[in-house]
Design a protein around this nucleic acid. Sequence first.
DNA 1: CGGCGTAAGCGTACGGTGTAAGCCTACACG
DNA 2: CGTGTAGGCTTACACCGTACGCTTACGCCG
Lengths: 224, 224
Amino acid sequence: MAKKSGTKTEPRIPLSRERILAAAISLADEAGIDALSMRRLAQELGVEAMSLYNHVANKDDLLDGIVETAATEFVVPSAGGDWKSEVRRSAISVHETLLRHPWASNLVTTQKPGPARLRRGDALLGTLRGAGFSSDLTYHAYHIIESYVVGYTQQILNYRSLDESKFEDVAASFLRGDFAEEYPHFTEHARQHMEPGREGGSAFELGLDLIVDGLERLRDGTAR
Amino acid sequence: MAKKSGTKTEPRIPLSRERILAAAISLADEAGIDALSMRRLAQELGVEAMSLYNHVANKDDLLDGIVETAATEFVVPSAGGDWKSEVRRSAISVHETLLRHPWASNLVTTQKPGPARLRRGDALLGTLRGAGFSSDLTYHAYHIIESYVVGYTQQILNYRSLDESKFEDVAASFLRGDFAEEYPHFTEHARQHMEPGREGGSAFELGLDLIVDGLERLRDGTAR
DNA sequence: CGGCGTAAGCGTACGGTGTAAGCCTACACG
DNA sequence: CGTGTAGGCTTACACCGTACGCTTACGCCG
């Protein structure tokens, strides 16, 4: 214990909420959300688990933090432009962000929204109101849009995780046609999922357009 | 240890997968999915945790089991009748079932589907095909419908769990109007959520009809 | 009726989780 | 240089899923 005085122990670059959240996100991205434990995260940061609690209230707060950080990537629709393209842009950005962070789509339905999500939600509502939607219809439109966006994304991620698990079981036998008599349509559906260009974003946008156009028709009172 | 021979220890009414799943479901319904641990479940059944493993492969299998059991309540659309009302009936039944078992909607996006869900999925696809939807359009329609159904349900459950937590925090201050300047539209939206008749199932059906009608238009090639 | 094989429940133990409480160290400032 | 304190560390607790081995009670066969 001479006075090496800077080498004695490492100089201790301090933690911070930002560093922790960033590490948590990349850990969740790379190793999956289940690998995100306080101990493992601390280890990744070269620190002990309990030290994290100086910057984060508890694990739930940590989860709030990472989903909020991810939500920063959401495009906030602007009230000025064409409402349909603004709604589309924003919805697509949410979809793509959630695909980029596969752990996020479940947290979005669980954790309470922070500023980033609130800001986008408010802007989305405002865009609709500005486009002439009644207060009542805006309420419904908001839910319909959000339902579709996260529901669709979860569905894609679900299929994706199934076939990432190496087709071990169900997926493989479906493609093989083991259930072709019991579930003929589902078998075909599973095969369609495997077609090359199938998962290009256009599928998401097809449903999105269907919804946006439907909302416009509701707004205009066009009889069905 | 005389020959009481039936009272010595309790007669041991045996476990079974069904008894276990039923107990798991009612435990999850009443105490929440987080309370569903192997130990707690065993205790509820008057048994030790490890005994459950004689009837259930592991916890994941247990979860598979309860979501599959819940899925039994889904209405399977029949290919015979009017496709729109069949699709509606089935979608509504899924929505209501998931509301009845709040833990299920997250598991549905996580666990792999068992026979009950496959049967309904296959029938839904078959109903669409029978209604003249092309193979390609059926593929998209299926995803759009399912996305909306589970997305919408999760959203409702999310709001519900927020205000069940006694308005402790965010919800209360929103209704109080604390964020009326920052998030005016969201504040209004939150207030709309609290209006009495607002959560009647008709909101779900409004979006459902929008989607079903939109799909019909796509099928018929009606220019937007 | 006696004996025994086996299915199934039990007990213990291990490595993991989140986090409460208290200690200790290194830095910033007077 | 001395000291207060922010923040990292250590220990400990209760709980989780589950592997492994013991024990019990039932059903069948002689």
